[in-house]
Nucleic acid binder design. Structure first.
Length: 578
DNA sequence: GCCGTTTTCGGCCCGACTGTTTTCAGTCG
Protein backbone atom coordinates (compact mmCIF):
# COMPACT_ATOMS: atom_id res chain seq x y z
CA UNK A 1 0.00 0.00 0.00
CA UNK A 2 1.64 3.24 -1.06
CA UNK A 3 1.28 6.53 0.69
CA UNK A 4 -0.41 8.04 -2.39
CA UNK A 5 -3.20 5.52 -2.17
CA UNK A 6 -3.54 6.19 1.54
CA UNK A 7 -3.79 9.95 1.03
CA UNK A 8 -6.46 9.32 -1.56
CA UNK A 9 -8.17 7.07 0.94
CA UNK A 10 -8.38 9.92 3.45
CA UNK A 11 -10.06 12.05 0.79
CA UNK A 12 -12.40 9.26 -0.25
CA UNK A 13 -13.42 8.59 3.32
CA UNK A 14 -13.94 12.27 4.00
CA UNK A 15 -16.20 12.47 0.95
CA UNK A 16 -18.20 9.45 2.04
CA UNK A 17 -18.78 10.93 5.50
CA UNK A 18 -19.64 14.26 3.90
CA UNK A 19 -22.28 12.62 1.74
CA UNK A 20 -23.72 10.67 4.67
CA UNK A 21 -23.91 13.94 6.62
CA UNK A 22 -25.64 15.73 3.77
CA UNK A 23 -28.19 12.95 3.36
CA UNK A 24 -28.92 12.95 7.10
CA UNK A 25 -29.49 16.71 6.90
CA UNK A 26 -32.01 16.17 4.11
CA UNK A 27 -33.71 13.50 6.19
CA UNK A 28 -34.00 15.91 9.10
CA UNK A 29 -31.47 14.13 11.32
CA UNK A 30 -29.67 17.36 12.06
CA UNK A 31 -27.45 16.40 14.95
CA UNK A 32 -26.40 13.15 13.37
CA UNK A 33 -25.72 15.09 10.20
CA UNK A 34 -23.50 17.54 11.98
CA UNK A 35 -21.52 14.72 13.55
CA UNK A 36 -20.72 13.21 10.13
CA UNK A 37 -19.93 16.55 8.50
CA UNK A 38 -17.60 17.44 11.31
CA UNK A 39 -15.79 14.11 11.09
CA UNK A 40 -15.45 14.64 7.32
CA UNK A 41 -13.85 18.06 7.85
CA UNK A 42 -11.51 16.85 10.55
CA UNK A 43 -10.24 14.07 8.31
CA UNK A 44 -9.37 16.61 5.63
CA UNK A 45 -6.89 18.31 7.93
CA UNK A 46 -5.11 15.12 9.01
CA UNK A 47 -1.51 14.62 7.97
CA UNK A 48 -1.47 10.99 9.07
CA UNK A 49 -3.32 8.48 6.98
CA UNK A 50 -6.40 6.73 8.26
CA UNK A 51 -5.29 3.25 7.26
CA UNK A 52 -2.24 3.48 9.43
CA UNK A 53 -4.20 5.02 12.28
CA UNK A 54 -6.69 2.19 11.99
CA UNK A 55 -3.90 -0.39 12.13
CA UNK A 56 -2.59 1.27 15.26
CA UNK A 57 -6.09 1.37 16.76
CA UNK A 58 -6.07 5.17 16.92
CA UNK A 59 -9.08 6.11 14.78
CA UNK A 60 -11.13 7.17 17.79
CA UNK A 61 -8.44 9.61 18.91
CA UNK A 62 -9.51 11.87 16.02
CA UNK A 63 -11.93 14.50 17.29
CA UNK A 64 -15.47 13.82 16.16
CA UNK A 65 -14.81 10.17 15.42
CA UNK A 66 -16.34 7.68 17.79
CA UNK A 67 -17.50 4.11 17.55
CA UNK A 68 -20.05 4.50 14.78
CA UNK A 69 -17.93 6.46 12.35
CA UNK A 70 -14.80 4.43 13.00
CA UNK A 71 -16.78 1.32 12.02
CA UNK A 72 -17.74 2.97 8.74
CA UNK A 73 -14.10 3.85 8.10
CA UNK A 74 -13.04 0.31 8.89
CA UNK A 75 -15.63 -1.11 6.51
CA UNK A 76 -14.35 1.14 3.76
CA UNK A 77 -10.72 0.21 4.42
CA UNK A 78 -11.57 -3.48 4.36
CA UNK A 79 -13.95 -3.60 1.39
CA UNK A 80 -13.70 -0.28 -0.44
CA UNK A 81 -17.40 0.16 0.09
CA UNK A 82 -19.89 1.42 2.65
CA UNK A 83 -23.26 -0.30 2.72
CA UNK A 84 -24.76 2.29 5.07
CA UNK A 85 -24.18 5.00 2.46
CA UNK A 86 -25.71 2.90 -0.30
CA UNK A 87 -28.81 2.34 1.81
CA UNK A 88 -29.02 6.02 2.63
CA UNK A 89 -28.73 6.99 -1.02
CA UNK A 90 -31.53 4.58 -1.86
CA UNK A 91 -33.69 6.14 0.84
CA UNK A 92 -33.88 9.43 -1.07
CA UNK A 93 -35.71 10.00 -4.34
CA UNK A 94 -33.14 10.48 -7.12
CA UNK A 95 -31.93 14.05 -7.56
CA UNK A 96 -32.98 15.36 -4.17
CA UNK A 97 -29.45 15.42 -2.84
CA UNK A 98 -28.13 17.14 -5.96
CA UNK A 99 -30.81 19.83 -5.84
CA UNK A 100 -29.93 20.85 -2.28
CA UNK A 101 -26.55 22.02 -3.56
CA UNK A 102 -28.42 25.05 -4.96
CA UNK A 103 -28.69 28.15 -2.86
CA UNK A 104 -32.17 28.59 -1.46
CA UNK A 105 -33.11 24.96 -2.00
CA UNK A 106 -33.08 22.87 1.13
CA UNK A 107 -34.55 19.45 1.82
CA UNK A 108 -38.21 20.48 1.95
CA UNK A 109 -38.23 22.26 -1.38
CA UNK A 110 -36.05 19.62 -3.04
CA UNK A 111 -38.51 16.91 -1.97
CA UNK A 112 -41.44 18.88 -3.27
CA UNK A 113 -39.81 19.55 -6.65
CA UNK A 114 -38.88 15.93 -6.94
CA UNK A 115 -42.31 14.56 -5.92
CA UNK A 116 -44.54 16.95 -7.80
CA UNK A 117 -42.51 17.67 -10.93
CA UNK A 118 -40.43 14.51 -11.15
CA UNK A 119 -37.25 16.59 -11.34
CA UNK A 120 -34.16 14.40 -10.85
CA UNK A 121 -31.25 16.73 -11.61
CA UNK A 122 -30.20 20.35 -11.78
CA UNK A 123 -30.53 20.23 -15.58
CA UNK A 124 -34.12 19.03 -15.33
CA UNK A 125 -34.85 21.70 -12.75
CA UNK A 126 -33.54 24.34 -15.12
CA UNK A 127 -35.89 23.09 -17.84
CA UNK A 128 -38.80 23.06 -15.41
CA UNK A 129 -38.06 26.66 -14.40
CA UNK A 130 -37.70 27.85 -17.99
CA UNK A 131 -40.99 26.25 -19.05
CA UNK A 132 -42.98 27.78 -16.20
CA UNK A 133 -43.65 24.51 -14.39
CA UNK A 134 -42.39 25.66 -11.02
CA UNK A 135 -44.75 28.60 -10.67
CA UNK A 136 -47.68 26.27 -11.19
CA UNK A 137 -46.92 24.61 -7.83
CA UNK A 138 -48.72 25.75 -4.70
CA UNK A 139 -46.52 28.07 -2.67
CA UNK A 140 -44.34 29.04 -5.63
CA UNK A 141 -44.43 32.04 -7.93
CA UNK A 142 -42.62 33.43 -10.95
CA UNK A 143 -40.30 34.97 -8.40
CA UNK A 144 -39.34 31.51 -7.15
CA UNK A 145 -38.64 30.53 -10.74
CA UNK A 146 -36.29 33.47 -11.23
CA UNK A 147 -34.51 32.62 -8.00
CA UNK A 148 -34.03 29.02 -9.06
CA UNK A 149 -32.47 30.10 -12.36
CA UNK A 150 -30.20 32.56 -10.58
CA UNK A 151 -29.16 29.90 -8.10
CA UNK A 152 -28.33 27.48 -10.93
CA UNK A 153 -26.27 30.15 -12.67
CA UNK A 154 -24.38 30.96 -9.51
CA UNK A 155 -23.85 27.30 -8.69
CA UNK A 156 -22.15 26.78 -12.06
CA UNK A 157 -19.94 29.83 -11.62
CA UNK A 158 -18.87 29.48 -8.02
CA UNK A 159 -17.41 26.08 -8.69
CA UNK A 160 -14.38 27.87 -10.12
CA UNK A 161 -14.45 31.33 -8.65
CA UNK A 162 -12.69 31.29 -5.34
CA UNK A 163 -10.05 33.98 -5.19
CA UNK A 164 -6.59 33.49 -3.80
CA UNK A 165 -5.99 35.12 -0.43
CA UNK A 166 -3.43 37.46 -1.99
CA UNK A 167 -5.98 38.74 -4.52
CA UNK A 168 -8.59 39.23 -1.81
CA UNK A 169 -6.22 41.22 0.40
CA UNK A 170 -5.72 43.70 -2.45
CA UNK A 171 -9.47 43.98 -2.95
CA UNK A 172 -9.90 44.65 0.76
CA UNK A 173 -7.43 47.53 0.50
CA UNK A 174 -9.41 49.03 -2.40
CA UNK A 175 -12.63 48.74 -0.42
CA UNK A 176 -11.02 50.25 2.68
CA UNK A 177 -9.74 53.19 0.65
CA UNK A 178 -13.17 53.80 -0.76
CA UNK A 179 -14.98 53.51 2.58
CA UNK A 180 -12.47 55.79 4.27
CA UNK A 181 -14.05 58.68 2.33
CA UNK A 182 -17.42 58.25 4.00
CA UNK A 183 -17.85 60.26 7.18
CA UNK A 184 -20.71 58.08 8.37
CA UNK A 185 -18.44 55.05 8.59
CA UNK A 186 -16.64 54.67 11.92
CA UNK A 187 -14.84 51.36 11.48
CA UNK A 188 -14.20 48.87 8.68
CA UNK A 189 -12.94 45.31 8.98
CA UNK A 190 -12.89 42.41 6.59
CA UNK A 191 -14.34 39.37 8.38
CA UNK A 192 -14.90 35.77 7.31
CA UNK A 193 -12.31 33.48 5.79
CA UNK A 194 -10.30 36.47 4.53
CA UNK A 195 -9.70 37.64 8.09
CA UNK A 196 -8.76 34.12 9.11
CA UNK A 197 -6.28 34.26 6.21
CA UNK A 198 -7.57 31.10 4.56
CA UNK A 199 -5.66 30.29 1.37
CA UNK A 200 -8.67 30.91 -0.85
CA UNK A 201 -11.80 32.95 -0.24
CA UNK A 202 -15.22 32.18 -1.72
CA UNK A 203 -16.87 35.46 -0.88
CA UNK A 204 -15.77 38.44 1.10
CA UNK A 205 -17.54 39.80 4.20
CA UNK A 206 -16.98 43.44 5.05
CA UNK A 207 -18.17 44.69 8.42
CA UNK A 208 -18.78 48.36 9.03
CA UNK A 209 -19.68 50.30 12.17
CA UNK A 210 -21.99 53.22 11.55
CA UNK A 211 -24.91 55.06 13.10
CA UNK A 212 -26.26 55.66 9.59
CA UNK A 213 -26.42 52.23 7.96
CA UNK A 214 -28.27 53.28 4.83
CA UNK A 215 -25.79 56.00 4.01
CA UNK A 216 -22.89 53.63 4.60
CA UNK A 217 -24.40 51.05 2.27
CA UNK A 218 -25.15 53.63 -0.38
CA UNK A 219 -21.54 54.78 -0.28
CA UNK A 220 -20.25 51.21 -0.58
CA UNK A 221 -22.56 50.37 -3.47
CA UNK A 222 -21.22 53.34 -5.43
CA UNK A 223 -17.82 51.70 -5.94
CA UNK A 224 -17.08 51.73 -9.67
CA UNK A 225 -15.59 48.20 -9.59
CA UNK A 226 -19.00 46.74 -8.70
CA UNK A 227 -20.57 45.06 -11.71
CA UNK A 228 -23.82 43.86 -10.16
CA UNK A 229 -25.87 44.53 -7.06
CA UNK A 230 -27.54 41.37 -5.81
CA UNK A 231 -29.35 42.91 -2.87
CA UNK A 232 -29.34 46.21 -1.05
CA UNK A 233 -31.17 46.37 2.26
CA UNK A 234 -30.99 48.70 5.22
CA UNK A 235 -28.19 46.97 7.09
CA UNK A 236 -26.65 44.68 4.51
CA UNK A 237 -25.96 44.43 0.84
CA UNK A 238 -24.48 41.86 -1.53
CA UNK A 239 -22.67 42.91 -4.68
CA UNK A 240 -20.47 41.37 -7.34
CA UNK A 241 -17.00 42.64 -8.17
CA UNK A 242 -15.43 42.05 -11.56
CA UNK A 243 -18.25 39.88 -12.84
CA UNK A 244 -17.84 36.91 -10.51
CA UNK A 245 -16.68 37.68 -6.98
CA UNK A 246 -19.31 38.31 -4.34
CA UNK A 247 -18.80 40.81 -1.53
CA UNK A 248 -21.26 41.18 1.34
CA UNK A 249 -21.28 44.28 3.50
CA UNK A 250 -22.99 44.43 6.88
CA UNK A 251 -23.49 47.49 9.01
CA UNK A 252 -23.74 47.31 12.80
CA UNK A 253 -23.65 49.80 15.64
CA UNK A 254 -20.32 50.62 17.26
CA UNK A 255 -21.49 48.99 20.54
CA UNK A 256 -21.93 45.61 18.84
CA UNK A 257 -18.97 45.85 16.49
CA UNK A 258 -16.73 43.46 18.42
CA UNK A 259 -19.39 40.80 18.83
CA UNK A 260 -20.37 41.13 15.18
CA UNK A 261 -16.75 40.92 14.07
CA UNK A 262 -16.28 37.82 16.19
CA UNK A 263 -19.42 36.28 14.76
CA UNK A 264 -18.78 37.08 11.09
CA UNK A 265 -15.14 36.04 11.28
CA UNK A 266 -16.07 32.45 12.15
CA UNK A 267 -15.22 29.78 11.53
CA UNK A 268 -18.59 28.24 12.02
CA UNK A 269 -17.14 25.42 14.09
CA UNK A 270 -15.18 27.84 16.26
CA UNK A 271 -18.32 29.88 16.89
CA UNK A 272 -20.43 26.89 17.77
CA UNK A 273 -17.87 25.77 20.32
CA UNK A 274 -17.55 29.28 21.73
CA UNK A 275 -21.31 29.67 22.06
CA UNK A 276 -21.58 26.31 23.74
CA UNK A 277 -18.96 27.45 26.21
CA UNK A 278 -20.97 30.66 26.74
CA UNK A 279 -24.13 28.68 27.45
CA UNK A 280 -22.31 26.60 30.06
CA UNK A 281 -21.29 29.81 31.79
CA UNK A 282 -24.82 31.21 31.82
CA UNK A 283 -24.42 33.49 28.80
CA UNK A 284 -25.91 33.79 25.37
CA UNK A 285 -23.51 34.86 22.61
CA UNK A 286 -24.76 36.35 19.37
CA UNK A 287 -23.59 38.93 16.84
CA UNK A 288 -25.08 41.61 19.11
CA UNK A 289 -23.08 40.79 22.15
CA UNK A 290 -22.56 38.51 25.09
CA UNK A 291 -25.69 38.51 27.29
CA UNK A 292 -26.36 37.10 30.76
CA UNK A 293 -29.17 34.59 30.42
CA UNK A 294 -30.78 35.34 33.78
CA UNK A 295 -31.65 38.98 33.07
CA UNK A 296 -30.65 39.48 29.42
CA UNK A 297 -28.16 42.23 30.33
CA UNK A 298 -25.16 42.78 28.13
CA UNK A 299 -21.78 41.68 29.42
CA UNK A 300 -19.60 42.46 26.39
CA UNK A 301 -19.65 43.24 22.70
CA UNK A 302 -17.88 46.44 21.80
CA UNK A 303 -14.61 44.65 21.12
CA UNK A 304 -13.72 41.07 20.31
CA UNK A 305 -11.34 41.04 23.26
CA UNK A 306 -14.21 41.85 25.62
CA UNK A 307 -16.16 38.85 24.34
CA UNK A 308 -13.31 36.40 24.83
CA UNK A 309 -12.23 37.87 28.17
CA UNK A 310 -15.73 37.71 29.63
CA UNK A 311 -15.79 34.04 28.79
CA UNK A 312 -12.61 33.66 30.79
CA UNK A 313 -10.44 33.23 27.71
CA UNK A 314 -7.44 35.06 26.35
CA UNK A 315 -7.97 36.69 22.95
CA UNK A 316 -7.82 34.09 20.19
CA UNK A 317 -6.47 35.54 16.97
CA UNK A 318 -8.52 35.01 13.79
CA UNK A 319 -5.97 32.73 12.11
CA UNK A 320 -6.47 30.12 14.85
CA UNK A 321 -10.26 30.08 14.78
CA UNK A 322 -10.79 26.79 12.96
CA UNK A 323 -11.78 24.59 15.88
CA UNK A 324 -8.47 22.79 15.66
CA UNK A 325 -7.94 22.83 19.41
CA UNK A 326 -7.60 26.59 19.93
CA UNK A 327 -10.51 26.92 22.36
CA UNK A 328 -9.24 24.02 24.46
CA UNK A 329 -5.74 25.57 24.39
CA UNK A 330 -7.18 28.96 25.39
CA UNK A 331 -9.07 27.41 28.30
CA UNK A 332 -5.87 25.73 29.45
CA UNK A 333 -3.86 28.93 28.99
CA UNK A 334 -1.73 27.18 26.39
CA UNK A 335 -2.25 29.20 23.23
CA UNK A 336 0.98 29.39 21.24
CA UNK A 337 2.91 32.62 20.99
CA UNK A 338 2.51 33.05 17.23
CA UNK A 339 5.05 34.46 14.85
CA UNK A 340 4.12 37.89 13.47
CA UNK A 341 5.32 39.97 10.54
CA UNK A 342 7.36 42.14 12.92
CA UNK A 343 9.41 39.10 13.94
CA UNK A 344 10.50 38.49 10.36
CA UNK A 345 13.84 40.05 9.52
CA UNK A 346 14.34 38.88 5.98
CA UNK A 347 13.13 37.03 2.92
CA UNK A 348 14.81 33.73 2.08
CA UNK A 349 13.77 33.18 -1.53
CA UNK A 350 13.89 35.93 -4.17
CA UNK A 351 14.59 35.84 -7.91
CA UNK A 352 16.46 38.57 -9.78
CA UNK A 353 16.90 39.44 -13.45
CA UNK A 354 19.83 37.01 -13.49
CA UNK A 355 17.17 34.34 -14.09
CA UNK A 356 13.43 34.87 -14.56
CA UNK A 357 12.91 37.78 -12.14
CA UNK A 358 12.43 41.34 -13.36
CA UNK A 359 14.47 43.36 -10.84
CA UNK A 360 18.21 43.97 -10.61
CA UNK A 361 20.05 42.97 -7.46
CA UNK A 362 20.29 46.60 -6.43
CA UNK A 363 16.57 47.21 -6.96
CA UNK A 364 15.76 44.20 -4.82
CA UNK A 365 18.03 45.42 -2.04
CA UNK A 366 16.53 48.90 -2.11
CA UNK A 367 12.96 47.58 -2.07
CA UNK A 368 13.77 45.25 0.81
CA UNK A 369 15.38 48.07 2.76
CA UNK A 370 12.30 50.23 2.32
CA UNK A 371 10.22 47.35 3.73
CA UNK A 372 12.49 47.33 6.78
CA UNK A 373 14.10 43.97 6.01
CA UNK A 374 17.63 43.21 7.17
CA UNK A 375 18.43 40.62 4.52
CA UNK A 376 17.21 38.97 1.35
CA UNK A 377 18.47 35.71 -0.10
CA UNK A 378 18.95 35.88 -3.85
CA UNK A 379 17.95 32.44 -5.10
CA UNK A 380 17.89 32.34 -8.87
CA UNK A 381 17.11 29.21 -10.84
CA UNK A 382 19.84 26.88 -11.98
CA UNK A 383 20.66 25.77 -15.48
CA UNK A 384 18.26 22.93 -16.08
CA UNK A 385 15.41 25.40 -15.98
CA UNK A 386 16.31 26.76 -19.39
CA UNK A 387 12.98 28.49 -19.69
CA UNK A 388 13.88 30.61 -16.67
CA UNK A 389 17.40 31.40 -17.91
CA UNK A 390 18.81 29.24 -15.15
CA UNK A 391 22.35 29.96 -13.98
CA UNK A 392 25.31 27.69 -14.64
CA UNK A 393 28.38 27.58 -12.37
CA UNK A 394 30.08 30.37 -14.24
CA UNK A 395 27.20 32.85 -14.14
CA UNK A 396 26.49 31.94 -10.53
CA UNK A 397 30.09 32.80 -9.66
CA UNK A 398 29.72 36.14 -11.42
CA UNK A 399 26.51 36.85 -9.57
CA UNK A 400 28.10 36.17 -6.18
CA UNK A 401 30.94 38.61 -6.99
CA UNK A 402 28.33 41.21 -7.89
CA UNK A 403 26.50 40.58 -4.61
CA UNK A 404 29.75 40.93 -2.62
CA UNK A 405 30.36 44.24 -4.32
CA UNK A 406 26.84 45.52 -3.60
CA UNK A 407 26.98 44.41 0.02
CA UNK A 408 29.95 46.66 0.65
CA UNK A 409 27.62 49.60 0.06
CA UNK A 410 25.13 48.57 2.79
CA UNK A 411 25.51 49.04 6.51
CA UNK A 412 22.45 47.42 8.06
CA UNK A 413 21.44 45.20 5.17
CA UNK A 414 22.78 42.19 3.37
CA UNK A 415 22.02 40.29 0.21
CA UNK A 416 22.63 36.62 0.88
CA UNK A 417 24.20 34.51 -1.84
CA UNK A 418 21.84 31.69 -2.64
CA UNK A 419 20.39 29.65 -5.43
CA UNK A 420 17.23 27.67 -6.15
CA UNK A 421 18.66 24.46 -7.45
CA UNK A 422 16.53 21.98 -9.31
CA UNK A 423 15.98 18.53 -7.82
CA UNK A 424 16.30 16.26 -10.83
CA UNK A 425 14.26 13.11 -11.28
CA UNK A 426 17.12 10.99 -9.85
CA UNK A 427 17.27 13.16 -6.72
CA UNK A 428 20.52 14.90 -7.66
CA UNK A 429 20.86 18.64 -8.09
CA UNK A 430 21.59 20.24 -11.43
CA UNK A 431 24.64 22.13 -10.24
CA UNK A 432 27.96 21.02 -8.83
CA UNK A 433 28.84 20.82 -5.16
CA UNK A 434 31.88 23.03 -5.43
CA UNK A 435 29.68 25.88 -6.75
CA UNK A 436 27.16 25.41 -3.95
CA UNK A 437 29.81 25.39 -1.22
CA UNK A 438 30.56 29.05 -1.83
CA UNK A 439 26.99 30.16 -1.10
CA UNK A 440 25.21 31.32 2.05
CA UNK A 441 22.26 29.04 1.38
CA UNK A 442 20.88 26.57 -1.12
CA UNK A 443 17.17 26.13 -1.76
CA UNK A 444 16.41 22.88 -3.56
CA UNK A 445 13.06 22.45 -5.29
CA UNK A 446 11.18 20.12 -7.59
CA UNK A 447 10.04 21.83 -10.79
CA UNK A 448 9.27 18.92 -13.08
CA UNK A 449 8.44 15.24 -13.10
CA UNK A 450 5.42 15.45 -10.83
CA UNK A 451 3.91 12.24 -12.11
CA UNK A 452 6.03 9.66 -10.32
CA UNK A 453 4.73 7.43 -7.56
CA UNK A 454 4.96 8.21 -3.88
CA UNK A 455 8.04 6.17 -3.18
CA UNK A 456 10.05 7.68 -6.00
CA UNK A 457 8.97 11.26 -5.23
CA UNK A 458 9.64 10.87 -1.52
CA UNK A 459 13.07 9.47 -2.25
CA UNK A 460 13.79 12.42 -4.51
CA UNK A 461 13.00 14.83 -1.69
CA UNK A 462 14.90 12.73 0.83
CA UNK A 463 18.04 12.66 -1.28
CA UNK A 464 17.86 16.46 -1.57
CA UNK A 465 17.50 16.72 2.21
CA UNK A 466 20.50 14.44 2.62
CA UNK A 467 22.58 16.45 0.14
CA UNK A 468 25.55 18.00 1.92
CA UNK A 469 24.93 21.56 0.69
CA UNK A 470 21.15 21.90 0.77
CA UNK A 471 19.76 24.28 3.40
CA UNK A 472 16.08 24.55 2.46
CA UNK A 473 13.58 22.44 0.53
CA UNK A 474 11.60 24.93 -1.57
CA UNK A 475 7.81 24.61 -1.96
CA UNK A 476 8.00 21.03 -0.66
CA UNK A 477 4.77 19.64 -2.11
CA UNK A 478 4.88 21.51 -5.42
CA UNK A 479 1.17 22.18 -5.36
CA UNK A 480 -0.39 25.12 -7.19
CA UNK A 481 -3.64 26.15 -5.57
CA UNK A 482 -6.61 25.22 -7.78
CA UNK A 483 -4.15 24.08 -10.49
CA UNK A 484 -1.93 21.22 -9.42
CA UNK A 485 -2.29 18.65 -6.66
CA UNK A 486 0.48 18.36 -4.07
CA UNK A 487 3.15 15.73 -4.67
CA UNK A 488 2.21 12.51 -2.89
CA UNK A 489 5.14 12.56 -0.49
CA UNK A 490 5.47 10.66 2.76
CA UNK A 491 5.53 13.48 5.29
CA UNK A 492 6.52 11.15 8.07
CA UNK A 493 9.84 10.39 6.40
CA UNK A 494 10.36 13.92 5.10
CA UNK A 495 9.81 15.48 8.54
CA UNK A 496 12.02 13.04 10.40
CA UNK A 497 14.85 13.31 7.88
CA UNK A 498 14.65 17.11 7.75
CA UNK A 499 14.74 17.35 11.53
CA UNK A 500 17.67 14.96 11.68
CA UNK A 501 19.69 16.73 8.97
CA UNK A 502 18.83 20.24 10.18
CA UNK A 503 17.38 21.04 6.79
CA UNK A 504 14.64 23.65 6.69
CA UNK A 505 11.31 23.23 4.95
CA UNK A 506 10.09 26.30 3.14
CA UNK A 507 6.83 28.07 3.69
CA UNK A 508 6.65 29.48 0.19
CA UNK A 509 4.59 32.67 0.36
CA UNK A 510 3.77 33.05 -3.32
CA UNK A 511 -0.03 33.48 -3.46
CA UNK A 512 -0.81 30.39 -5.50
CA UNK A 513 1.69 28.17 -3.66
CA UNK A 514 1.50 28.71 0.14
CA UNK A 515 3.54 25.53 0.46
CA UNK A 516 3.98 24.12 3.09
CA UNK A 517 0.40 24.96 3.96
CA UNK A 518 -1.03 25.60 7.44
CA UNK A 519 -1.75 21.98 8.34
CA UNK A 520 1.58 20.64 7.09
CA UNK A 521 3.64 23.34 8.74
CA UNK A 522 1.90 22.63 12.03
CA UNK A 523 2.72 18.95 11.69
CA UNK A 524 6.33 19.84 10.78
CA UNK A 525 6.69 21.97 13.88
CA UNK A 526 5.36 19.14 16.03
CA UNK A 527 8.00 16.89 14.52
CA UNK A 528 10.80 19.28 15.38
CA UNK A 529 11.32 20.65 11.87
CA UNK A 530 12.32 24.30 11.48
CA UNK A 531 11.01 26.39 8.65
CA UNK A 532 12.07 29.23 6.33
CA UNK A 533 9.67 31.73 4.81
CA UNK A 534 10.40 32.77 1.24
CA UNK A 535 8.26 34.91 -1.03
CA UNK A 536 9.60 33.41 -4.28
CA UNK A 537 9.27 37.02 -5.51
CA UNK A 538 10.04 37.58 -9.17
CA UNK A 539 9.47 41.35 -8.95
CA UNK A 540 10.06 43.88 -6.20
CA UNK A 541 6.39 44.42 -5.39
CA UNK A 542 6.14 40.70 -4.66
CA UNK A 543 8.36 41.06 -1.60
CA UNK A 544 5.10 42.07 0.07
CA UNK A 545 4.00 38.43 -0.07
CA UNK A 546 5.90 37.91 3.17
CA UNK A 547 2.67 38.61 5.03
CA UNK A 548 1.05 35.63 3.27
CA UNK A 549 3.86 33.37 4.45
CA UNK A 550 3.45 34.67 7.98
CA UNK A 551 -0.29 34.06 7.70
CA UNK A 552 0.27 30.41 6.78
CA UNK A 553 2.66 30.04 9.71
CA UNK A 554 0.19 31.62 12.11
CA UNK A 555 -2.58 29.34 10.89
CA UNK A 556 -0.13 26.51 11.51
CA UNK A 557 0.38 27.57 15.16
CA UNK A 558 4.05 28.33 14.40
CA UNK A 559 6.14 30.12 17.02
CA UNK A 560 8.99 32.53 16.18
CA UNK A 561 11.74 30.19 17.30
CA UNK A 562 10.82 27.63 14.67
CA UNK A 563 11.19 30.06 11.75
CA UNK A 564 14.76 31.04 10.86
CA UNK A 565 13.66 34.35 9.31
CA UNK A 566 13.31 35.65 12.87
CA UNK A 567 17.08 35.38 13.36
CA UNK A 568 19.43 38.26 12.64
CA UNK A 569 21.80 37.76 9.76
CA UNK A 570 24.72 36.53 11.88
CA UNK A 571 22.61 33.95 13.74
CA UNK A 572 20.99 32.91 10.47
CA UNK A 573 24.25 32.25 8.65
CA UNK A 574 25.48 30.28 11.64
CA UNK A 575 22.29 28.19 11.72
CA UNK A 576 22.49 27.53 7.98
CA UNK A 577 25.99 26.10 8.27
CA UNK A 578 25.35 23.85 11.24
C1' DG B 1 -23.35 10.19 16.00
C1' DC B 2 -20.46 12.42 19.51
C1' DC B 3 -19.34 13.69 24.06
C1' DG B 4 -18.60 14.67 29.43
C1' DT B 5 -15.21 20.01 35.71
C1' DT B 6 -23.34 20.07 35.29
C1' DT B 7 -24.22 14.61 32.03
C1' DT B 8 -22.43 7.48 29.97
C1' DC B 9 -28.06 10.09 28.79
C1' DG B 10 -29.63 13.91 26.92
C1' DG B 11 -28.15 17.50 25.15
C1' DC B 12 -26.17 19.50 20.66
C1' DC B 13 -25.40 28.06 18.76
C1' DC B 14 -28.16 31.72 17.37
C1' DG B 15 -30.42 35.01 14.66
C1' DA B 16 -31.67 37.15 9.96
C1' DC B 17 -33.74 36.98 5.78
C1' DT B 18 -37.12 35.35 2.27
C1' DG B 19 -41.37 34.62 0.52
C1' DT B 20 -46.77 34.88 0.13
C1' DT B 21 -46.48 33.62 5.83
C1' DT B 22 -51.40 36.52 7.52
C1' DT B 23 -48.01 34.44 12.49
C1' DC B 24 -44.45 31.26 10.10
C1' DA B 25 -41.53 27.51 7.90
C1' DG B 26 -37.55 27.00 5.32
C1' DT B 27 -32.95 28.24 4.42
C1' DC B 28 -28.62 30.20 5.36
C1' DG B 29 -24.25 31.54 7.51
Amino acid sequence: MTHLVEVRENLQISRILQEIGEIHAIRGELFRSRAYLKAARNILTLTENLRQMHEEGKLQTIPGIGRGISEIIEEFLASGDVKYLKDLRASLPPGVHELTALEGIGPKIAFKLSQELGVESIEQLETAARTGKIQSLKGFSSKSEENVLKAIERHRKTLQHRLLLGQVLWLIEEIRDHLADCRYILKVEAAGSARRMCETVGDLDILVASAHPEKAIKHFASMPQITRILSKGTTRSSVVFGGSFQVDIRVVSAESFGAALQYFTGSKDHNIKLRTLAVKQGYKLSEYGLFRRKDDTKAAGETEESVYHNLGLPYICPELREDRGEIEAAVAGELPELISLEDVQGDLHVHSDWSDGTATLREIAEAALSLGLAYVAICDHTRSLGIARGLDEERLKKQTLEIDKLNKGFEEFRLLKGVEANIMSDGNLDISNHALKELDLVVASVHSGFKGDEEKLTNRILSAINHENVSIIGHPTGRLIQRRQPLPIDFDKVFSTAAEQNVLLEINAFPNRLDLNDVNSRAAQERGVKMAIGTDAHAVNQLGYLDLGVAVARRGWITPKNVVNTLDVAQLVKQLHQ
